[in-house]
Nucleic acid binder design. Structure first.
Lengths: 116, 116
DNA sequence: GTCTTTCATCGTAATTTTACGATATACAGT
DNA sequence: ACTGTATATCGTAAAATTACGATGAAAGAC
């Protein structure tokens, strides 16, 4: 077989090679940051969730489930992905969970994209 | 087992539910378009490729391979993903292949992101 | 206390992604 | 025709993604 520790998935990709001359750790970080946010938006359901949260400023999980043609557990999974990417956050409201966009996350994304 | 024809991956996701009241096929298409482009940028190597092509306006495949800590076949695979997403295109230059950004693809991405 | 509601997590399966080496293909030069 | 260079594609394996139902955990209602 071979090593296959996946040089790219975590945070190692593109960094070894970049040391080969001109220091561009800046670019590397941008690459990873943008890739991380882009990946989080790489599914229509998650784009939709972000859109809804942008409109309603805040939204209960159950309402999001109602807006999507997916099982509750699947929506919960998508919410987790967006949370791990730092795009949304949640607070508890009794038995309910209130989601909202992380302030500045959209601005950060737009900035990274505009720098392309 | 069950059906599991994956209602989301192709182009079906979010469309059945959207018919439940206010017609918003517009939003659905935007969701899919943005998700498609975002997914294409959802890997640091592909972000890097797009950045390089933006700088140098045009680039031979081999140079891209030299800039990335990945095997030639892997880079070729990433290029294929970007091509299928409509972000880059290629022309043959002798035995070499010359890649460039598809004119307007970045603008389209920026527009979709700015509409978030 | 016991329900009920709301959501996250678990277990699982199918599919996709990511990576590599090996091989095929296409073109230029000799 | 043969050689070498450049690239794509194939075969394969590991890991991640996407989806679902079932189960678990927390909080309010009774």
């Amino acid at each position: 077989m071979k090593d296959r520790t996946n040089l790219c998935a975590p945070e190692k990709c593109l960094e070894p090679a970049a040391v080969g001359g001109f220091a561009q750790g800046e670019t590397d970080r941008s690459d990873h940051d943008l890739a991380r946010l882009a990946k989080a938006l790489g599914h229509p359901a998650r784009v939709r969730i972000v859109r809804i949260l942008h409109q309603r400023k805040t939204c209960i999980c159950g309402e999001l489930v109602g807006q999507l043609p997916l099982a509750q557990s699947t929506v919960s999974q998508h919410l987790k992905i967006l949370r791990q990417a730092g795009m949304i956050e949640a607070t508890n409201d009794g038995p309910r969970v209130c989601y909202r966009l992380v302030s500045g996350s959209l601005v950060a994304l737009k900035k990274l994209v505009s720098q392309l």
